[in-house]
Structure formats: structure tokens, C-alpha cells
Design a binder for these strands. Structure first.
Lengths: 212, 212
DNA sequence: ATTCAAAAACCGACCAGGCGGTTTAATTAC
DNA sequence: GTAATTAAACCGCCTGGTCGGTTTTTGAAT
């Protein structure tokens, strides 16, 4: 008989949270089940009751992670009305005083390294990206409904914008001494505005030389 | 007696190459010394003669990797005379039929995941980035000497350009089904041109709303 | 209300396998 | 013959997963 129906959900959330924090601290390669047990305040057997294997736990933890991060992005974007502000609303990714990010970035890097080799993990990553793109696309199409971003190819543009976010994030997090937050924010805005403007100037940018 | 004096250099190169290929195939977390030995055509004892520990070998392998990649970037860039062409000359990073890249990307992802936690690794990454930035900066300054890229802040701009390369690369490699090579090349060119143009339009892009 | 049985939740000692590193034996070159 | 280099057997540690046992909770029976 289940003592309380929601106990399982509580325990699982507790374990996933512990797993994510432990992975972020030690890195996937070095983390042991014992570490996670200790962080979660459970024994090996107790943990095993909810997740059969290490891989099961990791998969669940990563999915939970991506869900949370995306939710935060969506919520933050919805705070803005202006399409361009929506597109630039993910600047919270470059907030060095946000403790969640110091868990999130290590996990993301670890995850991508695994995704290179493991198909299941790669699929999760791809789906996550698809969600981001859909979110950005909504903002971009809203702008086009207001006669802005003329000539912009929505699908290609949101892929690029999202990639720019990621590129800046990579440098901002891994080489913070040289890549300041101010640089990240300025770069993001310049790049995104520049990209969108590039569609307006010419329908085909390829092949032509650059003449100021 | 060493049959040939330069045997050590040959063996080390052979081992490093084997290590890089093995890491790329299996991922850092799963690779064993035995794997590398087998790939290198050496025994455990033989390998141990040249590299005392796994960590020694990995450090050396990663340094070798970054050296090679950078060398290739520098060589390729030097094939071009036009500053803008130089800035865009790293498009070989998005050549899916280049077998070296299918070794390079896995290694880079693995390396970054480790660099998050290990200071020594992070330092190698930062130095590598510094080298790229210096390379790009040379091209950009050459352009400014030709009265192009006016108003562009060289240091900030090359950081952004380099970050854009990385962001596009991340998506292009990890989600190739949706992020085609054509998209990568087009995105790169649009983003870089757009970024550089953004400096010319206004000296301060921040704070203002976007009005088409 | 109290007792009791059954099921769920939880614990932690234990085990087998795999790993990095070491040591010992064999082989080669001169 | 000897020194140097390679090969392979070996060792000890660590880890993930198992498994019997223990506690806790529930619901029914008295």
C-alpha cells in the first residue's frame, strides 16, 4: 500500500535534484552513486528503489534539467511584449550571480560531451533545441506580423540566434576572465540585430565580396 | 640502445595520435589505457614508458590537439588576402566530409566538459581561445588599416566572431539533421557581417529599442 | 482502541568486474 | 653478453549493482 501517494514523486524530485547538484560539482565522469546517495540523504538501497541503474537516474536527471531550463526561458520571454525584447530576453543566461547557472552550465557541458557518443542523449539535446527554436520563432513571427524583420527567414534566423546565444555562453562561462558579462550582453545584442538586418540589405549574402 | 635517436618523438606522436582517435571514438569517460595501447600498437608497459599516468597522457594529447587545430586555422587563414575573407576563412570547421573534424569535435566537447572542473584544462582552453582571438584580430586590424570595419572595437568584435563560430559549430555538429552545412555557412557570414556593420550604425547599441 | 499482518520503503554489507599502475619475464639490437 | 626496450601477467583499489534484513505505514480484524 502506498503510504502517501505523492511520496514517490517527492523522493524522485529529491533524488534528481541531488543528482544534478552532485554532477555539477564533480562532473559526470567522477560522480559515484554513493556521492548522490549522500547528497540525497538516502542509502544505496533506497535510491535503487526508485532508479534501477545509474544510467536510468542520469537520463531522468538530464531530462528534468532541460525541462526546468526551458521552462525558465519561456517564462522569462513571456514577460516581454516587444518581439525584439523577446528575442533578447535570454540574457539571464549571462548572469554570473545566479547560483542555478553554476549548476546548469557544468551539466550542459557534461551532457553535450555524452551526447556526442550516445544516441539517446543526443536526441534529448535535439528536442531541447527544437523547443528553443519554436519559442524564438513565435517571437520572430510576432515581429513580422508587425511588419518588422522583413525578408528574414524565420527558421534559419532562429537557429542562428539560438546558436549565437550558445556560442557566447560557452566563452562567457569557460573563459570569464577575458569574456565579461558586459561583453556577452553587448555581443548578443549586436549579433542578433546585425543578423536580422542582414536579411533586409540583400536577399542573398553569399558569394559577394564585402565592400564597406 | 635506441635504434634511432628520434624514436621517442616518433613513439610519442604515435601514442598521442592513438589517444586522440580513441578518445574521439569512445569518449573520455569510457576510454581505457588498454584501448589506447591497442590502437597505438603498443603494450601497457610500452606506453607507460613514455607517459607516467593516464592524466599525463591526456594532458599531452589535448595540448597536441589544440596545437594542430590552431595550426590548421592559421594556415588556412593565410591563404587569403582580403581581411573579410580571412575572418570567414574558418568555414572548414563546417565541412562534414573532413574526417579530422569527426575526431576533433568529440575531443573538443569532451575537453570542455573536463575544463569546467579542472583548472589545468581550463587554462589550456583559455590559451587556445586567446590564440584564435589574436589571429582574428590581426585580420580585423588589417581591414581597419584599409579603412574598413570603422568604429569596430577589435578586441570585443573578435571575441564575438570567435564565439559565433563556436555556437554554430555546436549546433551543426550535435544537431546535424536540422542544422545543415548550408545553414552554418550562411549564418556565419550573415552574423559576422551584421556584427561588424552594427558598429558602424551607432556607437552605442545598448538601451535603445529596436525600430525597423 | 488495539492488535496484527502485509506491503512498501529503506538500509548497508557484500560481491564481482574492470581499471590504472607495477613488476617481472622475454626479446631485440649491437 | 649486455643493456635497453617491449610484452604480458599481476595486484590492489574502486565502483555499480545485488540482496537479505529492518523499519515504517496501512488497513483490517478483533
Amino acid at each position: 500500500m502506498p503510504p502517501i501517494p505523492e511520496l514517490e514523486a517527492i523522493r524522485k524530485a529529491q533524488i534528481l535534484d541531488a543528482a544534478l547538484r552532485t554532477i555539477a560539482e564533480h562532473g559526470c565522469a567522477n560522480v559515484t552513486m554513493d556521492d548522490i546517495c549522500r547528497t540525497a540523504g538516502l542509502s544505496k538501497g533506497g535510491l535503487n528503489h526508485y532508479y534501477k541503474s545509474k544510467n536510468d537516474l542520469f537520463m531522468a536527471a538530464f531530462q528534468e534539467f532541460f525541462k526546468q531550463i526551458f521552462q525558465r526561458g519561456e517564462d522569462t520571454m513571456n514577460l516581454y511584449d516587444d518581439p525584439m525584447e523577446k528575442l533578447l530576453s535570454f540574457s539571464w543566461l549571462y548572469n554570473e550571480s545566479d547560483p542555478d547557472l553554476h549548476i546548469g552550465y557544468p551539466i550542459l557541458f557534461d551532457f553535450m560531451a555524452i551526447a556526442v557518443h550516445e544516441h539517446d542523449y543526443r536526441k534529448i539535446f535535439e528536442d531541447w533545441i527544437e523547443n528553443w527554436l519554436a519559442l524564438l520563432k513565435k517571437a520572430l513571427l510576432l515581429g513580422q506580423k508587425q511588419d518588422r524583420f522583413q525578408g528574414v527567414d524565420p527558421d534559419a534566423a532562429v537557429m542562428t540566434i539560438s546558436a549565437i546565444y550558445q556560442g557566447i555562453a560557452t566563452r562567457w562561462y569557460l573563459a570569464p576572465d577575458t569574456h565579461s558579462t558586459a561583453w556577452a550582453l553587448d555581443s548578443l545584442e549586436r549579433s542578433v540585430r546585425g543578423l536580422l538586418a542582414s536579411y533586409g540589405e540583400t536577399s542573398q549574402v553569399k558569394g559577394g565580396g564585402y565592400h564597406k
